[in-house]
Design a protein around this nucleic acid. Sequence first.
DNA 1: CCTTGACTTCGAGTTAGCTCTAACTCGTAT
DNA 2: ATACGAGTTAGAGCTAACTCGAAGTCAAGG
Lengths: 137, 137
Amino acid sequence: MLTISQVTERTGLTPYTLRYYEKIGVLKGPSRRAGGARSYTESDVSYIQCLVTLKKLGLSLEEITEFTRDGCVMDRIQQGEDPDHFTPTLNKRTEILSKYLLDLEAKRQELDHMISLAQEKLNGYLELSKERCEELK
Amino acid sequence: MLTISQVTERTGLTPYTLRYYEKIGVLKGPSRRAGGARSYTESDVSYIQCLVTLKKLGLSLEEITEFTRDGCVMDRIQQGEDPDHFTPTLNKRTEILSKYLLDLEAKRQELDHMISLAQEKLNGYLELSKERCEELK
DNA sequence: CCTTGACTTCGAGTTAGCTCTAACTCGTAT
DNA sequence: ATACGAGTTAGAGCTAACTCGAAGTCAAGG
């Protein structure tokens, strides 16, 4: 069980931010130790790390909440909870997740495009530098 | 030559946003037609589209300004401007661009990781659905 | 017992990035 | 001529996402 400051070390978020995320419902409140201090599990940490990555990729907290709501269900089923409880919404959730995947893949295409543009420009620079060197001989 | 509303159609930005970007220096002011209305070129549009992509990938306006400052120099050299004028800062710019590329590639790795996580979860759902179907027979 | 340090809540303040309103100026169609 | 639609500026207002300060609680060490 980890304290809030141990979680900040592992995730790069500040304690302010962690408490803020909890307040607005992006994170569920972790268990508490005697005295009321937050006590995080390893699984909490990996969820937060996932959240941080999605943030870096430009998703808003609202989108993250929307998308990761899904993950939980899967985890709960895998941890042995009765799948019948979730069946009614299973198709809906599969649909959301597929949409999420498509979004990610679109993002990857754009990113690949940016990378090749940047590479092109960089090659231009390097060629120019080479020419400059040749001239000096 | 395009009006501001034609540019909004092509880029998805609002006229408010375009003028705002100009005010804070993310975009250079385009030429004007008689009466003072902004008049954009095709090259302006593709620059703005590039900016929008970088935004979607989570870069701040400040980072975008920092990174794309570079592109201009290259374009100006390719358009025949004297490269000697830029030589003093050429190495510096190559360095910035390389860093930019590394950032993009790191982002791509994170994205790939997210994609495979999502795919895994989706497969979990699909398998579960399949099992459910089998049971019904 | 008392200090220290890491936690707690609550609520106010800050920054980035828009978003809109008001008041105005054009060019074109009726 | 006048009304309309699309543009203009300056500046106020708004939302998301933190960020911090104040005041308090608790557990362990001297």
